[in-house]
Design a protein around this nucleic acid. Structure first.
Lengths: 354, 354
DNA sequence: CTGAAAGCGCTTACAG
DNA sequence: CTGAAAGCGCTTACAG
């Protein structure tokens, strides 16, 4: 394969010339958005094939049309970190479904405010943007998006006016779960939280740590649990993972059995799976001796239990965000959407032992 | 917030006019790629601020420059399916690192050959494309990419000439792992494979199923295992997951203890974790009564064991693919890269009992 | 250091 | 049903 003089790729003009028609007609033959005789269309397509023309250049098309056919999704710094969480992946899937009418692609954008960052929110050729679990530092990006007039939707994160938000009832849902535990007779309850602060501090949740919290979701869920069990001890994990849940549960469970909680409220299903794991290790039976409540409603790979959890509509959230994007691009001003999580009662919660 | 007559967004020309300079100069002030006096630059920037100009339109820029600053990544049909696999996520992370010099974004593309698909490989405004775990049906897309002259790199999948591939030594690595098991005295060995065919058939691997296989990776790894244990029974999982590994292991282990394998070769770490789980359930001690070998070298969330596994450089693979893309865009013709996996000896393998 | 001109490749009113 | 013209918003040689 010799590289030769790298012949310029053929353009629509080349094809039109070869087919003996105007560029306009050739364009119509490809887009099908105008009346072209079958004979002409065939001739154009034949010329294209002969020249090895692979269809209109998307760059030129997007300039002309004012649309790039790309929707940006802003995630955390690294792909790895963001997609460790099955809930985020499901949301992404939902977004893809929601923007389907746009026939657009999803561009991964990170929200590192660094100047040397790759294509940023400020300069990416996107028609719209969805912010996923966005951090406070996102403020700059939001400002840029607004200046650019790029429709923006946020999934949990409240970045300000004019931006529709897709949320769930973190506080109320957790409260509902906590009330269920109380109905089962539990009074000694522990809590395992998602990372509260930017540093992802692990360990006992102190007033000090709560004051430093930057993430709204864990704080809201914590409030819901505290509404029912004001004095519940809480331990924060460094991430939403089985391993972190396990570690946090050990802190709560590795005490005199008199002090030991009879129920643990975990802020995610992965954390809950870790709590169950810790209980197994300590010979504490679930749910007989320990009730465990999760949050998310995902299927935790390898977990044998049917977890009692707050089932949140992750895919729906993504779809709603995608749908809002579609509406905004159509000139509408979609409302924010608040979803409700439902308490799924599985086999990890039981009445407290007499 | 009244919408009013939606004032056209300001363009570089508007800014230039306001600043009293030419468009060329205004452009230079933004890009910094030419000599502009500080005074002029300041004037331009001030005008931009005043008009609410957020910088050059990326669409126009990409048409003019012939680069969109976007690299496409072709994954399986659904985001959810593709990113269930931690190895793929790590590769994606590696790709992001590899293309960093490009300062480009990653566009998620799916390889459904459907006509009504969203922005496809055929029409996406990408400068280059990385194929991840691509299926045979990808042939059409590859043809389109070639016609378009879009540099393409494949991570495992051999889509043909001119396309550099990033591979690992599936067969040799598995063989090495199998030999290690043999050295430990194992002769009765079972295999748990990744999905072999497009339908993801679960269960015993028959000659018939092997003949229908469309995925190269599991076939290569199977060959490596069979090179040492020709008669080993194999069971296929529907996916790379703990749950599938568990189910497959039950098929292999739920037999008379005389027929029971003393070691199981799993084609992924998630599958291996499932095997260990099944062993726990059956009261079979790992590694005392059953040795378990994985593949990947990821950290399986919640797994207490230090898994003996073939450690493959997932992130490196992605980075190499990204690097190849960068080179191709620079006019080079990068070679294919073959990585080597290393046997990591953990605590899940032991000498067979006398 | 600055400006006038051309053009990236396409699509879209507008005539005919 | 087809064509000539304009222009999407920018960047880049090229003069000065």
């Amino acid at each position: 394969m010799s590289t030769e003089s790298a012949p310029r790729h053929p353009t629509l003009a080349d094809v039109a010339a070869k087919a003996g028609v105007s560029a306009s007609t050739a364009s119509l033959a490809f887009s099908g958005s105008g009346p072209v005789s079958d004979a002409t269309k065939e001739r154009v397509l034949a010329a294209a094939t002969e020249l090895g023309y692979a269809g209109p250049d998307p760059r030129a098309r997007s300039l002309r049309q004012g649309r790039s056919g790309i929707v940006g999704v802003v995630i955390e710094e690294r792909v790895r970190a963001a997609f460790l969480d099955p809930v985020k992946i499901r949301m992404l899937d939902g977004i893809a479904e929601g923007i389907a009418p746009l026939r657009a692609g999803l561009l991964l954008l990170t929200d590192t405010g660094e100047a040397d960052a790759p294509v940023s929110v400020e300069s990416a050729p996107v028609d719209a943007v969805v912010l996923i679990g966005c951090s406070p530092r996102l403020a700059d990006s939001v400002a840029a998006l607004r200046r650019r007039g790029i429709p923006t939707v946020a999934i949990e994160g409240a970045p300000g006016d004019g931006i529709p938000e897709i949320t769930i009832d973190n506080t109320a849902a957790t409260r509902r779960g906590a009330e269920y535990l109380r109905e089962l007779g539990h009074t000694k309850v522990g809590i395992v939280t998602l990372p509260l602060d930017a540093a992802r501090t692990r360990g006992r949740v102190t007033a000090e740590l709560e004051a430093q919290a930057t993430s709204t979701t864990p704080i809201e869920r914590l409030a819901g649990a505290r509404a029912v069990f004001p004095d519940a001890r809480a331990v924060a994990g460094r991430a939403s993972s089985v391993e972190e849940g396990r570690a946090a549960a050990h802190v709560l469970l590795d005490v005199d059995s008199a002090d030991r909680p009879t129920a643990i409220i975990a802020q995610s299903d992965l954390l809950a799976a870790g709590v169950i794991r810790a209980a197994e290790e300590l010979g504490i039976a679930v749910p007989a001796d320990l009730s465990v409540l999760g949050f998310d409603g995902i299927t935790v790979d390898g977990l044998q239990h049917d977890l009692t959890t707050l089932d949140q509509p992750s895919v729906d959230k993504g779809r709603a965000a995608g749908d809002a994007v579609v509406r905004m691009l159509a000139g509408e001003e979609p409302e924010s959407v608040a979803f409700t999580s439902t308490l799924h009662i599985g086999d990890t919660t039981a009445r407290v032992r007499a």
